[in-house]
Design a protein around this nucleic acid. Structure first.
Length: 471
DNA sequence: TTTTGAGTTGTTCGA
DNA sequence: GTCGAACAACTCAAA
């Protein structure tokens, strides 16, 4: 038994809002008698958040406080600049160490380095399954292509011990003041707390994951895990989640069922890949990964952008996706690709506008994954889609929402439009427009661009950008 | 150093 | 309606 210090360690909670499999907490507990759980409402981060995501965060902090109280502890919430907040508690109490889960995003790196220069901060792993500093090519450089990265990742990954939540968590006797929780409202779609998150995970692993490869693209089904908000804030432990999926796969005799699990694990590796890309190539935050794509002549059309944001493009699937985002703070992955392709390739609007809108509206907004996804869609990123690969919003609609269920669900104006016209309402004869109470240009928007023409324009624009660079 | 094989998610056209 | 080829060329990763 290691001798523990009779002093206080701060467990600085950031993107690890959980007691289960929490490495920072576990390390703190193994070295110290008394733990002070601290969450800091960082104005710098909150400014870039949005009410819905902030609500989700607050609700989860409340759930966490409740969980802590069951263990004889509680959550200390502070507000302000993190290193200043930490200095304050550090010097007012007998604190000798601070533990936190490392975060490899550019903002977090600066924040933590600043803090570590002033205070004894120990960072643990946990934000990803493997560290972004763990996977390199044979020549020692980071990967920039997904497939070889994934191959290497799978070679290196191994099963590790999962840390159970502590039975009791000794809290300091000191007189500690916490901010009161700001008002917040809860999300129906994403109930707060570890228990709700674990229930969703179990449901997915028990019922959906083996079909994941076939159903994840269908807009009508709950074929996706819908875990992203929980994973972003670390309400679930990513390595626990991975290991459960991995063990499930080993247990399956029927190799038919492996395809779904494989496919989902691959998505987790994409998450790791984009975290690594952002950590190793931070210029992607403000520039294309490939700098030669800086020259694309974007249209900067504010009206088109507004129509896209509000789901008034006249393309039902695009509008359905954008309204799902507005109303719930979440969007189906297939819809994300369709609306992203539409913004970049049909409207020829800078992917960075879309990236920002997603950051401002998604509950799961994650700077690394969001940036990676947008650069992929725009064809400016690592492993970029060939520039001629332009999604057709109508064929995507027919293919992945054949019965129009998703569109009917999110676009009210189209409620009475016959299925025959649901993907292309502009083709409705006038009498049907009248009987379905959906006149194009009145109740429902006219198409703001013609896809065929827009496609040609984009092919030219990308070609031009390329030739400028080759001169 | 050179060579070789490969690269998330698509669309269109024509047989 | 279905199917296969063309769409372009380039860069990456590893041998």
């Amino acid at each position: 038994m290691v001798n523990k210090h009779q002093d206080i360690a701060i467990w600085w909670i950031r993107r690890d809002l959980r007691l289960h499999d929490n490495q920072a907490l576990t390390v703190a507990l193994s070295n110290h008698e008394t733990i002070m759980p601290v969450f800091i409402l960082d104005d710098q981060l909150l400014r870039n958040s949005n009410p819905r995501r902030t609500d989700f965060l607050i609700e989860n902090l409340k759930a966490m406080d409740k969980g802590l109280r069951d263990k004889g502890s509680r959550l200390i919430v502070m507000r302000g600049e993190p290193s200043i907040c930490l200095q304050k508690v550090f010097h007012e109490h007998n604190v000798t160490a601070i533990y936190a889960e490392a975060d490899h995003t550019p903002y977090a790196m600066v924040r933590d380095e600043k803090t570590a220069n002033q205070l004894p901060l120990t960072l643990t792993a946990g934000v990803s399954i493997l560290s972004p500093n763990q996977i390199y090519k044979k020549d020692g450089n980071p990967y920039t292509v997904f497939t070889p990265f994934a191959r290497r990742w799978k070679e290196q990954v191994e099963l590790v011990e999962i840390f159970h939540e502590p039975l009791r968590l000794p809290f300091p006797t000191a007189n500690l003041v916490s901010e009161t929780f700001p008002d917040s409202s809860s999300s129906k779609l994403f109930p707060a707390g570890e228990i709700a998150a674990q229930e969703r995970l179990s449901h997915f692993l028990n019922n959906c994951i083996v079909h994941y490869h076939k159903e994840r693209d269908l807009l009508t089904q709950d074929g996706t895990s819908m875990l992203s908000p929980y994973l972003h804030f670390g309400i679930l432990s990513i390595r626990d989640v991975f290991q459960q999926a991995f063990l499930l796969q080993q247990a399956k005799q029927d190799t038919d069922q492996h395809a779904g699990i494989d496919s989902w694990i691959n998505e987790l590796i994409w998450r790791e890949f984009f975290m690594m890309i952002l950590a190793k190539f931070p210029h992607v935050l403000h520039h294309p990964f490939r700098l030669d794509y800086e020259q694309i002549p974007w249209t900067d059309n504010e009206e088109h952008f507004k129509a896209w944001q509000e789901g008034r493009t006249g393309y039902p699937l695009v509008d359905a996706g954008m309204r799902q985002l507005q109303e719930t703070g979440w969007m189906h992955n297939r819809a994300r690709m369709v609306v992203a392709s539409f913004l970049c390739k049909d409207l020829l609007i800078n992917w960075q506008w879309g990236e920002k809108w997603f950051m401002q509206n998604l509950l799961d907004a994650d700077v690394a994954a969001n940036n990676g996804g947008w650069q992929w869609s725009a064809g400016t990123g690592t492993d970029a889609a060939p520039y001629f690969r332009i999604f057709n919003p109508v064929s995507q609609s027919k293919k992945f929402d054949a019965q129009g269920t998703y569109i009917y669900r999110w676009v009210d104006e189209l409620a009475n439009v016959p299925l025959k016209y649901i993907h292309t309402p502009w083709k409705m004869p006038l009498d049907i427009q009248n009987t379905s109470n959906c006149r194009i240009g009145l109740e429902y928007s006219k198409r703001i661009v013609d896809h065929t023409q827009a496609r040609e324009r984009t092919l030219q624009a990308y070609k031009q950008a390329k030739s400028i660079n080759n001169d």
